[in-house]
């Protein structure tokens, strides 16, 4: 379980995270959303220990993370970068994925690596150079090299950005399987379809503050919140709202609702 209590953090530039408090249960999936500059990344950097709060506390399974090193936190919280090129450096897929477990001194590394490569559909590329992989494959490699360390909590930063449909669907399936395995997922994204497919709960940020924390449709049905954050609703959600069905992100779901009303 992850609990954040009154977290404050201020950059030299003056940007502040103000009094952030929330709790994520084990196995829960939440999305952190908000426009650029709202503080999502700063919050995440505090969670993984790259930045340390000026005041307030973060508890990981009851333990205060201010006493833990970045490496210790990383055993429980895995962070996958938006741009996989930022975390890939080895000369083969297998080596890339083996790096973390070797550093942690884990056992049965080869077995674990193979297992993760199969899960992420990269096994056939295990001897390939990472830079020869496509964008979608690199994205999965970045995920694999974190997954292999078996973190309880996974933070995914814009995991589908730049991916085409096939690769986005593949990644989504992997994440859904992780949810079934009981992993806690924290998703940072602008993709509302992805949010509605993967998460029940969203945390909405604006200027360094949490301005809403609740079920996705409830949050998006509050006109005043949307105006405040300047978040643009997807066209489909705008239409479903005007048609009186509330917020719906999935075309098929909207069609079912439409049909049940018009038949």
């Amino acid at each position: 379980m992850l609990r954040i209590e009154n977290l404050c953090y201020e950059y030299e530039s003056g940007f502040k995270l103000k009094n952030i408090s929330f709790e994520i249960r084990d196995g829960e999936s939440i999305a952190i959303i908000g426009e650029n500059g709202s503080g999502k990344t700063t919050l995440v950097k505090n969670l993984i220990g790259l930045l340390r709060p000026d005041s307030g506390k973060i508890f990981l399974n009851g333990e205060d993370t201010s006493k833990m090193s970045v490496a210790e936190i990383a055993r429980t919280i895995g962070f996958v970068f938006q741009n996989p090129d930022n975390q890939i450096f080895a000369s083969s897929v297998k080596e890339e994925v083996s790096f973390g477990p070797k550093n942690l001194g884990m056992d049965n590394i080869e077995e674990k690596v193979n297992d993760v490569l199969k899960k992420t559909d990269l096994f056939k590329y295990r001897d390939k150079h990472p830079f020869k992989l496509s964008g979608g494959e690199k994205q999965r490699l970045a995920l694999a090299s974190i997954l292999v360390m078996n973190p309880k909590i996974l933070i995914l930063d814009e995991p589908t950005s730049g991916l085409d449909l096939k690769n986005a669907v593949k990644l989504m399936k992997i994440v859904k399987n992780l949810q079934k395995e009981g992993k806690t997922i924290i998703l940072i994204t602008h993709d509302m379809k992805l949010v509605s497919d993967l998460c029940e709960r969203v945390i909405l940020m604006k200027s360094g503050e949490i301005i809403a924390d609740g079920k996705i449709k409830e949050v998006f049905n509050r006109e005043s919140l949307l105006e405040k954050t300047k978040i643009e609703l997807p066209e489909i959600a705008k239409l479903s709202k005007i048609l009186g069905f509330g917020i719906i992100f999935d075309p098929k779901e909207l069609y079912e609702k439409w049909r049940s009303l018009n038949d």
Partner: peptide
Amino acid sequence: LKHVGIRVPEIVEFSNYLLKGGY
């Protein structure tokens, strides 16, 4: 398009369902 891996805009996908349903 979906078969070759291209997503049409969601609103178009909705209208395609309506078209198929004869609405």
